[in-house]
Design a protein around this nucleic acid. Sequence first.
RNA 1: GGCCCCAUGGUCAAUCGGUUAAGACGGAACCCUCUCAAGGUUCAAUGACAGGUUCGACUCCUGUUGGGGUCGCCA
Length: 552
Amino acid sequence: MPTNKDLAELLFPEVKLTIEDLEAKYPLRNLPEGAEVTRFAPSPTGFLHTGSLFTSMISYYVAKHSKGVYFFRLEDTDTKRTIVGSEVDLLNQLSIFGINADEGYSLDGDRGIYGPYKQSERREIYKIVIKELISRGRAYPDFCTPEDLEKIRASQEANKVLPGYYGIYARDRNLSVEERITKINAGVPYVIRFKSNGNHERKTSFDDAIRGTIELQDNDTDVVILKSDGLPTYHFAHVVDDHFMRTTLISRGEEWIPSTPIHLDMYSALGWKAPRYAHIPSIMKLDYGNKRKLSKRKDPEAAVSYFLKEGYPTNAIKVYLMSIANSNFEEWTIQNNSYDLDAFPFSIERMSLDGALFDQDKLNYFSKEILAKMPLEEEFVLVKAWAKEYNEEFFSYIVKDEEYFKKILNIEKDRPNPRKDYAKYSDIYPLIKYFYKDKWDEIFSRGLSFKETLSREDIVSLLKDIKENMLFGSDESSWWNGFKEIAARDGFAISNKEYKLNPGAFKGNISDASEILRVVVTGANQSPNLHEILEILGKEEVIRRIDTVISC
RNA sequence: GGCCCCAUGGUCAAUCGGUUAAGACGGAACCCUCUCAAGGUUCAAUGACAGGUUCGACUCCUGUUGGGGUCGCCA
């Protein structure tokens, strides 16, 4: 009578090692008390998702603050969905955000002794565990075709019972070893399923690091652990990898809560201690009045690349995400006058339990704060790098005269309450184009629009006076006083009070006079501090612009 | 549909049985002001519902409702 051991040997004759060997190969980590081993384990199926960045940040900071280890594992077991090369984008984007792993899969190969860190290279390990599971009767080959499974499902639906491969519906779970061997020798295709001893009527519970005790129905499904392509499923790979990589805390999306009993079932079948789980709430979005998970397909902001392209400082994005993760973070930033995430005592217990709606306004707010307070040189480097990648024209103007661009960037920056015009790098260029001669010419050729109450003659005569008499190279208050004199001479009221008292006596208010200059110089009726703009442009260019307007 | 998770202003939320129910974003108003961006001051806006437990409930329990998730040889 052949035994399960014979079956295992038939299936995996090449496998000689045992689980014990693996235990020895991957020793327990020698870490201080309380240190957490966490990981980020994405599939190479596209660019980094905003929710993934969120989860990876949490894992990263938990490990960092507990003096533990944060590692990166590539879960490339779904060959159909894999996008070749996307792990490069994933890793690059993570590194742009400074979420660098202590060990794991990287572009320069594996770092660390718990590898390989790429699941497709861990086939041997999975086989060792599966072979042992089969000899112990806790896993078995299942010969159902997709059509067979469909039939089972259809009958379950017809009978209104729970769909799935369990109990009496697990067609092949009670096949005799002989029958299995016969089929295998006949070349019938198969998958390997885990044989669950669970009882659906009973409950299992576990202690979630964020949510506390969660009670679920016990798993009784014989899940597939090895697919017909020889690669493991997530359920199995997770259990094996996180056991042998000695992970202590699994942080993953809350969509995994319902399948946790499967994982617990396997841990217990293998006699392993399960790690703790932290199920992270999803980031949501409001869609026609309904909350739903950010979707990569529908929402541009679901991909981290969107924010990079828009030119948000990476720190702003992290700060926003941290404000969702720990709501006391915002108060902390105010109290400490700092956006230094490394210094913030992040706590996983403090995480809120429901999914936050993605709030672009709040992101913009943080981003403006961060950009406004960023030192000029630092901002310059970042803007330049962004422009190089995403806005060629902008970049060409920056490099033409870097010092000139720095002056523009520095407008009203070096003061206690700096300007907050820009939430992202892409906001900059449209607002500063007029500083460049040929761009101003373009603006001018499209026509300037002055206030309707002012006549062409009034405008021209004021401009002529400005051209002749306005101060350059002086401090702001002297310039302003001089400007007021000019305006007064040309029939403008130099104070609001004066104007309101007798509007008929004036061509306009001082604000109208300065608006004329502003429109001429910038092409717009709104701009930052005029004095700074005039000084940056220089006398020659300002007069050129005035002349162009006068003579048109 | 079964099972699970969640529930304080428009958004993010504090409170861990006793508060006039914080704070931030966003909104509104006013002040400042050569426009704008800021800044300052002020305002509006929250415990889903119904039962319990308790001297006392936003807080604990039960149910309802609502929202989300999950039920694959995808992760």
